[in-house]
C-alpha cells in the first residue's frame, strides 16, 4: 500500500521549505543519503545533518548533530527527512513534533514508511510524505530527469 502525492503538493513543499534536517545521513560520498543531502544543498536548501556516527564533523557546510535534540529549538527546521528504518520513525517524529513547533513536513525516504508516525504528524498539522525521495522528486518536477529518459509524467506546453 503506497500513498500518492500530487505534483502540485510536492512542488508547493519544495518551494516553501528552506531547511532539511537529514536524520541518518551518511558522510560516505557514495551512499544514497549523501547524494540526496548534497543535491539538496546544491539546490540552495540548508542541510542540518543528524547522525551520531559523524557527530561533531562537518557535512554540507553544517555541523553534524547526534540527534534532533542537538538542534537548537530556535532553529527553523522545515523538513525532517528520515533515512532510518521504518520502525525507528515514530520516536524520530515524536521528538521532531515536540522540539520544532513550526515544523512543516515529515519526509520519509524511499523504502521508509510508518503509518502510526504519519498519522501523529498529520494530526499535529504537519504534512507527511512517505516512501519518496526529495532529490528524485525535485529532479523529476524541475526537469533534470528529463535528461535521462525518465518518465516524469509531466506534460506541459509552457516554457520552463
Amino acid at each position: 500500500m503506497s500513498e500518492t502525492y500530487s505534483d502540485r503538493f510536492l512542488m508547493d513543499i519544495l518551494e516553501e521549505v528552506t531547511t532539511f534536517a537529514c536524520v541518518g545521513v551518511s558522510g560516505n560520498p557514495i551512499r544514497p543519503s549523501y547524494f540526496v543531502a548534497r543535491f539538496l544543498s546544491l539546490r540552495g536548501y540548508s542541510i542540518i545533518p543528524v547522525n551520531p556516527n559523524y557527530f561533531g564533523k562537518r557535512l554540507f557546510g553544517s555541523e553534524v548533530r547526534a540527534d534532533l535534540g542537538g538542534i537548537s529549538v530556535d532553529t527553523q527546521v522545515d523538513v525532517v527527512d528520515i533515512f532510518r528504518r521504518s520502525e525507528e520513525v515514530p520516536s524520530i517524529v515524536e521528538q521532531a513534533l515536540d522540539r520544532f513547533p513550526s515544523l512543516k513536513v515529515i519526509w520519509m525516504q524511499v523504502g521508509v514508511a510508518n503509518q502510526y508516525a504519519a498519522t501523529l504528524a498529520r494530526d499535529a498539522g504537519v504534512k507527511v510524505i512517505q516512501n519518496r525521495c526529495p532529490k528524485i522528486e525535485h529532479q523529476r518536477l524541475y526537469g533534470e530527469l528529463r535528461m535521462a529518459g525518465i518518465n516524469t509524467g509531466i506534460v506541459s506546453s509552457k516554457l520552463q
Binding site: 500518492t4 502525492y5 500530487s6 505534483d7 510536492l10 519518496r132 528524485i136 522528486e137 523529476r140 526537469g143 528529463r146 518518465n151 516524469t152 509524467g153 509531466i154 506534460v155 506541459s156 506546453s157 509552457k158 516554457l159 520552463q160
Partner: peptide, 23 residues
C-alpha cells in the same frame, strides 16, 4: 514515482518528453 495526472495515450504520444525547448 509519478503521481501526476494520468493522460490518455493520444496525448502522451504527442506531448510526453517534449516540453517547449527551454533555450
Amino acid at each position: 514515482m509519478n503521481d501526476g495526472p494520468a493522460y490518455g495515450f493520444d496525448t502522451l504520444q504527442i506531448h510526453a518528453g517534449a516540453r517547449p525547448d527551454p533555450a
